[in-house]
Design a protein around this nucleic acid. Structure first.
Lengths: 249, 249
DNA sequence: GGTTGTCCGGATGTCAACATCCCGCCGTCG
DNA sequence: CGACGGCGGGATGTTGACATCCGGACAACC
């Protein structure tokens, strides 16, 4: 059985705030004032504060000293950052999962793809598809069984979710047509144990999303490099924004 | 100029506690009691609490609901987890850095290698070498200019530091003999812009550390797979310990 | 006119007290 | 003798109040 988890108000608060952001009730760049949220959620400022720290870990929120927290404002450069990191993680996760997957796990993933097919056929809303999409990848990371890898994934997961939401909003059809096929391919390779090709396929899966977003958000045209040996495309530099390197020395 | 940073007591507390752990004053698995630390550091429990959250983000500390925080206890399985993730990150970071590096940046890295050579020749303590080692990689990530990538790195950095410390403690000579050469190679490739080989070299650099540690900690013998197209070795599964997946749906 | 100094509202950072929860111990019961 | 249940110490989770800091506006000064 899965172990039960007691969580506490901070996690609850984080969940609510995250929901609000995803549902668009709080626009990008908006200030998240602690007192406001505290009274709104009916918890103390301390708990809200801790919740905001959780969201900062997920990259959904950016906060500065004595300047409060704001919803992150994602631009074209962020697409590159997030998806480049995600591609590297996904490559590792998928390959590791392939090595450890039990038939039951593969069946679960296959069932998720089946659910996506049905949802697509039933003309379900795209956010429903997106939920299945995210669940699929969560399952893959879970199968990989590497808690550090999962943590790293959680560091970009919410941002990916946000990006895919805007992708859906701007380019509906394209997402719907690609999602199911790509995941079905992934499952097939995973079941077949085709490890060498899997890494590339997982990266390509992520990279295709990146390209679609780059096109929609109108960033500088991506270099469209051939990708036979990994993602070689250089990302445009960007200020390191968040300071505070751990200072062990 | 580098922007000035005001940090606050939480970061200060985190730094002190981190130091204590690195210097071995707090053994692995030991409980980190909030009241104790608070009186010891002469700050309030709230700040200590926030500091512990920071350390948890770095993977140095593990805490459970109403059960407090403990220093993480690293075993053979954790070596695989940490270094497998690190290899993936380092691959991306090094390749990206190669694409963006200015001559000045390469010179800085080269200077760090020079400092390592001098330290080695002067018979400096190994922890000094390790500091330069970490500084080198920090610099690489900084050059890559991807804040998400840097965040992910910070998620394993302290654990890597801890592992390298035990590596030094157990297998002194081997680390000293390998470090300088490997970093010099990295700089050479980076200066030369030899991108395709760089990714593999960076991965190999990390993987050699992983193997050394696996040997020293006496884990199950690693599968010693040929690594021509990436790290294919499956990691042994492990309980997902930390729960709390972000629950957006 | 542009720059600097000062002030004030509002928000965050920090603190110490109250509420809740674990864990080990021990007595009791089957 | 082993299992269940309650108790008490101690630690964490949560809260509301105080201290500090930021940002903009206005006024003084060169």
């Amino acid at each position: 059985m899965r172990r039960a988890q007691r969580r506490g108000l901070a996690h609850e608060a984080a969940d609510r705030i995250r929901e609000s952001i995803f549902e668009g009730h709080v626009p990008p760049g908006a200030a998240l004032r602690e007192v406001e949220l505290a009274s709104s959620l009916d918890v103390s400022r301390g708990s809200v504060r801790e919740g905001l720290a959780i969201l900062e870990r997920e990259g959904l929120v950016h906060s500065e000293w004595h300047r409060g927290a704001r919803v992150i404002d994602l631009g074209p450069d962020d697409v590159d950052e997030v998806y480049t990191v995600r591609a590297a993680l996904e490559r590792l996760a998928t390959r590791t999962a392939a090595a450890l997957a039990t038939p039951e796990r593969v069946a679960e993933l296959s069932a998720l793809v089946g659910a996506m097919e049905r949802a697509l056929a039933d003309g379900a809303e795209s956010p429903v598809l997106l939920s299945l999409d995210m669940a699929f990848h969560d399952r893959v990371y879970e199968t990989a069984g590497n808690s550090r890898l999962t943590d790293a994934w959680h560091g970009v997961r919410s941002q990916v979710y946000l990006f895919q939401l805007t992708r859906i909003r701007l380019g509906h059809a394209q997402y719907r047509s690609a999602v199911v096929d790509e995941h079905r391919d992934l499952v097939r390779m995973l079941a077949h144990g085709d490890t060498p090709a899997l890494g590339d396929a997982a990266e390509e899966h992520v990279d295709s999303a990146r390209r679609a977003l780059a096109r929609l958000l109108g960033g500088a045209p991506p270099p469209a490099e051939r990708r036979a040996d990994g993602p070689a495309d250089p990302l445009r530099g960007r200020d390191p924004r968040r300071g505070s390197e751990p200072s062990n020395g």
